[in-house]
Design a protein around this nucleic acid. Structure first.
Length: 562
RNA sequence: GGCCCGUUGGUCAAGCGGCUAAGACACCGCCCUUUCACGGCGGUAACGGGAGUUCGAUUCUCCCACGGGUCACCA
């Protein structure tokens, strides 16, 4: 039996604070009844990906919908993996997707990370003393002990357990080896510890696990429901040899000290839940509520579902920006996946913000869903169709300036012109839905600009060139910008009638052979000349915006080329 | 391999012991229409398998299969 008092002093001579000091330093929050405190706790090792935005949106909704607090803490406990600037990038990206933090690590005026709120520091690497205070307490209570086996030695012992070879592991042998190791570790004597400390050997602090895996803990997850998990008997690491905690320990201490009410995270954490529950119990903390959110999946080359991981298309939120998806659309899509009744609500509340939606934990799916670009596209089309021409113009321009400078400058050179174009068919009950992303704009309306105008489509060979030519010539003769759309179209019908192309679409459809063609063909002759394409938005509007000179010039060009 | 989670159409999903098993996306057809987009109408398409409980199982129980996750001084 070790002398815990002596051991604690030996291991943590520099720690003079007590857990009571910490409890006093981080007072309990005073919040309205039912207010939820949630957080996003990324490790600064890369960008935000879709799989991360997902639970974060839940955390944001739950906190803000309940009048609670959403905070951000940075889990930079693994110095080896930290990527400079990643934390800043994370925060900025989240902000564009409507995730604003009330508290935690934020970007200050100088562009650097700083703390907001009284529960800081919010970077875990700066809280060593806090964690060590609790660690010391655990040692004092005989619930944790040091282990001097170095990382290298451990790696050697578990050579078979390397990530890459994990599938080929002899699990039986591995389990026995682990058990033996655990017993050996626990048998360390005070003399050995003193000797190691005297030599200055580094150590990790391990929990003295009291669990029996044969016994189950009953547990209720807010989204997964009731489950039973085996107790933890693994003496996992609490503090690494650099004195910084592992995720497990930091999670318990931080979420307790900051009064987190709901821990929302991906379901990949479920297997370590027993460790966390054990730790909360050891530390005498009240356990928060847990919500383990199903992963977003993708299809691999064999048609199997796989967790959407960093390198996958659609993972990096910056991809969406580049592809021209607007954040509103992405949020909208996330909401449809998060709450099964969201779309129904949206149909009845077309003009409201998604933040007005009564988010409901019970409506969350507990199985992982496949990322669907099709659905995202549909949602996006609807979101954009509801925007004003001004808004679309501004957003397309901003996007183009960044990703398609040439196009961006054209749009920017005459915002009114661009706005008029985007106003075609916009507003009203049945708005046009041509744009899925900002990147679609160029193909949709680029022909308005002489710089981008090109004959993308041509006349089918079945049409008599003489008729085309005649149509175009006659049209120029009678074209008058002052005509309203009815008069304008009557003139086109008249041209067709003269050439033997009927304006009676019903009659034409009933018996196409009875006519040379229809006014649809006549319109097409003109459309191709003016837009360079077989398809375009309403041609009368197009001509009104383009102006007489351009319309005539383009038609004349076509006549000359026939 | 152990442990945990999951399994309704191609995708997202309603369903919570009795239904012709919703809806959305995608796909197909028709209508509207000068093209496209929109809109309207309709269509193809699903409860992984096997036991059991029950008068009756998509719904409850068990087993199996399959899929996923996880087994670090990473989070």
């Amino acid at each position: 039996m070790l002398d815990y008092q002596r051991l604690a002093e030996l291991l943590f001579p520099q720690i003079t604070t007590t857990t009571a000091d910490m409890e006093a330093r981080f007072p309990q929050r005073v919040l309205p009844e039912g207010a939820k405190v949630t957080r996003f706790a990324p490790s600064p090792t890369g960008f935000v990906h879709f799989g991360g935005l997902f639970p974060t949106t839940v955390a944001e909704r739950l906190a803000h919908q309940s009048g609670g607090v959403l905070y951000l803490r940075i889990e930079d406990t693994d110095a080896k993996r930290e990527v400079p600037g990643a934390a800043e990038g994370l925060i900025k990206t989240l902000a564009t997707y409507g995730i604003e933090f009330d508290e935690g690590a934020i970007i200050g005026e100088d562009g650097k990370i700083c703390d907001k709120g009284i529960y800081g520091p919010y970077k875990q690497s700066m809280r060593a003393e806090i964690y060590q205070t609790y660690a010391k307490q655990l040692v004092l209570e005989g619930k944790a002990y040091p282990c001097f086996t170095s990382e290298e030695e451990l790696e050697e012992l578990h050579a078979i357990d390397k990530k890459a070879e994990i599938k080929n592991t002899d699990w039986q042998a591995e389990a026995e080896a682990r058990q033996a190791e655990k017993l050996a570790r626990r048998a360390i004597t005070m003399e050995e510890i003193e000797e190691n400390i005297a030599k200055g050997n580094p150590f990790v602090l391990r929990i003295l696990a009291d669990g029996d895996p044969e016994k189950k803990i009953k547990f209720t997850d807010l989204v997964k429901g009731n489950m039973e998990i085996p107790e933890n008997d693994e003496d996992f690491v609490l503090l690494k040899s650099d004195g910084i905690p592992t995720y497990h320990f930091a999670h318990a201490v931080d979420d307790h000290l900051r009064g987190t009410t709901h821990v929302i995270r991906g379901e990949e954490w479920l297997p370590s839940l027993a460790k966390h529950l054990q730790l909360f119990r050891y530390l005498g903390f009240k356990t928060p509520k847990y919500m383990h959110i199903a992963q977003i999946m993708r299809l691999d080359e064999n048609g199997n579902k796989k967790k959407l991981s960093k390198r996958d298309m659609g993972a990096n939120m910056d991809d969406y920006t580049r592809l021209g998806y607007c954040p509103e659309a992405v949020c909208e899509y996330v909401m449809t996946l998060l709450n099964s009744n969201y779309e129904e609500w949206r149909m009845q509340n077309a003009d409201k913000s998604y933040k007005d939606f009564p988010f409901n934990i019970k409506k969350m799916s507990c199985s992982g869903c496949l990322f669907d670009f099709n659905k995202l596209g549909d949602v996006s089309k609807n979101v954009i169709s509801k925007m004003s021409a001004e808004e679309v113009t501004a957003k397309v321009t901003a996007w183009a300036l960044q990703f398609d400078a040439e196009f961006g400058k054209l749009l920017e050179s005459d915002a009114e012109f661009a706005k008029a174009i985007f106003a075609i068919g916009r507003g009203g009950k049945k708005p046009r839905k041509d744009l899925t992303t900002w990147a679609d704009a160029k193909a949709y309306m680029g022909f308005f600009y002489d710089e981008l105008f090109a004959l993308e489509d041509s006349y089918d060979e079945k049409y008599d060139r003489a008729d085309i030519k005649a149509t175009l010539e006659k049209f120029i003769e009678c074209f008058d910008m002052a005509d309203d759309s009815n008069v304008w179209f009557e003139k086109i019908k008249a041209i067709g009638a003269e050439l033997g192309y009927t304006a009676d679409m019903k009659a034409y459809k009933a018996d196409p052979a009875a006519f040379k063609g229809s006014v649809a063909d006549i319109s097409m002759f003109i459309r191709v000349a003016v837009t360079g394409k077989l398809n375009s938005p309403d041609m009368y509007s197009v001509m009104q915006i383009l102006g007489r000179d351009k319309v005539v010039a383009r038609i004349e060009n076509m006549i000359n080329s026939l």
